[in-house]
Design a protein around this nucleic acid. Structure first.
Lengths: 237, 237
DNA sequence: GCGACATTTCGGGCTTGACCGAAATGAGGA
DNA sequence: TCCTCATTTCGGTCAAGCCCGAAATGTCGC
């Protein structure tokens, strides 16, 4: 059982502006180097190094060597959920992009999210943006995103090649993962799909070439094949 | 306008052990006085007063006068979700690699939760503990707690008097609330039901006298009528 | 109004930890 | 091998904020 001190010290880690900026910048799902993280946090590399070690020790991030630099990513889906929850608990922040916060430590004017980010982007390990929301709504039983998949949605996913039974089955020895979880989208104000299913959808969409990562950005671009496929298989436009 | 610092300062608030203890003690859904909160936090009333004012200003708690004392409760469901998310992100509770477990420096004296709390308790606004978990599993489609309600579960809830259609319909002008959301139970390690449905179930169980609040504690006691009703209506023992 | 109790305000001591400059370590590339 | 670049370690400074004692404010019961 987690004691209150565990929880307090975890929160205290996120409570430092530099560390918070680093974590938020990792929420897009990409792995960044220590130098990049130092920059988004607005601190020197020495300082950043200290912060990263603390975050790593607490399990908030994972890190691995890559040549002479070191890449860092969020530690787990729980951490991503935690950051989302934190974001939703700030009254004034409900509709601001979490990652944009990291890049805008100044009192930024109320800007709309860039078009590309609103269209499609990755949210930790799943698909967000207009496309993510539309897909979620197409798959769910009327008005119940994150609840039951509709029969038609389930059939479409199977036709597309997802092995839903395997996804649903808990993996022996690992903590069971929520199959289908709603994640509130800050650009659309409507939920999209996270959880094991959400992650599998994003993976498959990248595999099949429906979506492509934009180098150096969180936005995903929908390929012509993707646009066509989304309409044909899922009725999403 | 909002910036990273909003998120960081929110986390920093929870990052103080005294404030964290206060917030967690409110997670049971009951409203406590400043004095009681000072005690659970292990600080003097002066100190507690300062903390409570900070928490209130940030929206983490609500407070109101009640005679010559002041009661405090969690500010919103988002705050409760945030605390749950924090709890789940603590490494000692999250999935830990086996080798790390072997190398664990301090095999913490794994204390079990008190019996009453394990049996039934409120978790912010919904039902947790053994009863909460059993009920969730009885209502859900096999192995999919937080996903679809089974036809039988849905029928049982309606028979019991819950108006599921109204619960599902978003209230005009208010942020839509997730209908049915899994909340991982720390005593059972299995999910129970939160969200609008979870809250409605707890409310109705208190109304019908199936459950009773234990004054001064988070535990709920199951009445004889409740035990009988749970078995008859939901097949839960 | 008076005394008891709950809470808040004020002021000062003290610890914690964020930060940077300087220097060390380690991996690539020529 | 030597040089460069990314990152880490060390040491010392400084500000933030936690905490309590004392005293003030406010409410209740009589």
């Amino acid at each position: 059982m987690a004691s209150t001190t565990d929880i307090a010290s975890l929160a205290a880690l996120i409570g430092n502006p530099a560390r918070a900026a680093m974590l938020l910048s990792l929420l897009g799902g990409q792995a960044l180097t220590a130098g990049e993280l130092a920059e988004v946090a607005g601190v020197t590399p020495q300082t950043a190094s200290g912060h990263l070690e603390q975050l790593r020790a607490a399990g908030l991030i994972r890190a691995w060597a890559e040549g002479r630099r070191r890449r860092h990513a969020l530690g787990s889906g729980e951490v991503a959920q935690l950051l989302e929850a934190l974001h939703l608990a700030v009254p004034s922040l409900a509709s601001t992009p979490p990652q944009a916060l990291a890049a805008a430590p100044d009192p930024a004017p109320r800007r709309r999210a860039p078009l590309a980010l609103r269209e499609a982007r990755s949210c930790y390990d799943h698909l967000a943006g207009r496309v993510g929301v539309a897909l979620a709504e197409a798959l769910a039983v009327e008005g119940d995103v994150g609840g039951a998949l509709s029969a038609r949605g389930e059939a479409a996913l199977r036709r597309w090649g997802l092995d839903l039974d395997t996804l649903r089955a808990p993996v022996q020895g690992r903590r069971p993962r929520v199959f289908c979880r709603p994640c509130l989208d800050w650009s659309e104000r409507r939920p999209h799909l996270a959880g094991a299913l959400g992650a599998a959808i994003l993976t498959r969409a990248l595999e099949t070439g429906w979506l492509r990562r934009t180098p150096g950005a969180r936005a995903l671009s929908v390929t012509p094949a993707g646009r066509e496929g989304l309409r044909r298989v899922f009725g999403v436009d």
